[in-house]
């Protein structure tokens, strides 16, 4: 029931298009930019969703066309069940709901090794329609336990290292000092003029070093020529 009502709220707010966000197309899956990479430091498990109602993670997007959030979950294989609701909001002047979807914990695959060394869980991606003006905008995502099908045996990972794009995570309204371990992505669009001008700016910024570098390359070329045929 709650899922249905939440869905109605989001459809009303966004003209019905967000709830239809299905599997992404090839371009979205191939060309994307990983904006936030916060599965870092020494991630540790949050409280189980059987014991908490909502986890809220505010963040700032540094790229246009934000369209995906990926959250690593820890999963107790023998105890996982229920449903979570993922909500995405834009903040700023007012809070604007952007997207909502259900995450069925029972459908998760078995827990497997994630991260570089020692953590296990399931990495779950949530795709939503690209937000064209997302660069430098504030958002938060929320994972909320579904009262009708309460989730348990699952939680997210938290981590301590500060990240300039994030505010600390709130768990049931209590804000601590930890951050959600998650990733966010933007769809990349090929605007060649912008790509070339940005690259040119970066090269121009270091013109003195690059002048020396070109002289060095020229020296190697001269050496190559000097020993031709010797």
């Amino acid at each position: 029931m709650i899922r249905f009502l939440t869905g109605l709220v989001f459809m009303a707010a966004l003209g019905g298009d967000v709830a239809l966000a299905g599997p992404p197309g090839l371009m979205e899956r191939v060309f994307f930019y990983n904006d936030i990479y916060n599965f870092v430091g020494k991630p540790y498990p949050s409280p189980d969703f059987g014991r908490v109602r909502a986890v809220v993670q505010p963040f700032v997007s540094n790229c246009s066309n934000l369209n995906r959030v990926t959250i690593p979950f820890y999963v107790k294989d023998d105890a996982r069940k229920g449903t979570l609701t993922f909500n995405l909001y834009q903040t700023g002047p007012g809070t604007k709901p952007l997207f909502s979807t259900a995450v069925d914990v029972g459908q998760f695959p078995s827990s497997a090794k994630i991260g570089t060394h020692y953590l296990a869980g399931v990495i779950h991606s949530i795709w939503f329609p690209p937000q064209p003006l997302s660069k430098k905008q504030n958002y938060f995502w929320e994972l909320r336990a579904d009262p009708d099908r309460p989730a348990s045996g699952v939680g997210i990972y938290l981590t301590r290292p500060a990240n300039a794009q994030l505010e600390p995570v709130s768990i049931d309204g209590v804000k601590g000092s930890a951050y959600g371990a998650f990733y966010s992505y933007c769809q990349f669009r090929f605007e060649w003029n912008r790509i070339l001008s940005e690259s040119g700016e970066r090269l121009w910024r270091e013109k003195y070093f690059l002048s020396f570098y070109l002289v060095l390359l020229g020296g190697v070329g001269a050496y190559f020529k000097k020993y031709a045929g010797k």
Binding site: C63, F188, I195, E198, R202
Partner: peptide, 11 residues
């Protein structure tokens, strides 16, 4: 380093 958003968006 040449263009972060472009190169990191390539598969």
């Amino acid at each position: 380093p040449l263009n972060p958003e472009f190169f990191l968006s390539l598969p």
